[in-house]
Design a protein around this nucleic acid. Sequence first.
DNA 1: CCCTATGTTCCCAA
DNA 2: CTTGGGAACATAGG
Length: 270
Amino acid sequence: MPELPEVETLCRQLRHVIVGSEIAEIRIIDSKLGAIEGLEGKTVKGVSRDGKTLSIELEENLTLVLHLRMTGRLLWHNGNGLQPHTRLVISFGPGRISLIDPRRFATATIRQTADRISLGSDPLDAFDPSHLWKIAQQCTIPIKSFLMDQRRIAGIGNIYACEILHQARLDPWRKANGLSRDEWVTLGAAAQGILPKAIANRGTSISDWRDLFGKKGKHQDCLLVYGREDAACRSCGGKIQRRKLNGRGTYFCPTCQQRKGGAYDGTMEL
DNA sequence: CCCTATGTTCCCAA
DNA sequence: CTTGGGAACATAGG
């Protein structure tokens, strides 16, 4: 469910409600999440995000690391009633955070606060076209796969990869090492245009994403291609197509996002 | 029954 | 060794 804008939304909202509060109790309802013990009584010093990973920094060099994967949600609430699929409840003085996750892919671990998470650069503040052009030179995977590789760039998932590539007018199947420096500049501008806007909209509620307070985001109203198969391209009026790339539904406009040197005719080997 | 799903990791083949 | 593709994970919904 959550990509960079959604996790950033949760991160900012969490800061408002838990920084300075003490963990009163942790209830692990589904132990598949991971081993998290010994955090009761610790005070929250800060909340941060690395790509799609959320870190709740505590006293004594301890950090609770949450990854929501596909369907994980966090919900701030009072009272004891639990929603279906609640896997974890962290109680603070003023309220509780439930981690709700139907598909049970989410993870919770503890790390030393001082240990950095090893991920690619954050496209919000460091989408460096020259650097990315350079590290893409050995890389023959499709540009969409490159964008979604968390070791290279951290935080972009399937929805925003489709959106960014459309905004940059690039074919998702172009080889990563085939992009010119100028195209990397265009790609950076697209990412740095779309991601902050999605954060301002508190994420994309295309199915079940909700923010910390259970509210839908607004960015689903701004999507250019994702989930719009057969709808009219907002740029040229042509039909948005959906094809699979590495098993993921990939939405694009065959007119606006042509491969260099020729029209995409739907039969080219991909 | 079929297919799809906002993510990551592992296995296998080239 | 690397690269890249697909399955697996577990569950719900169309």
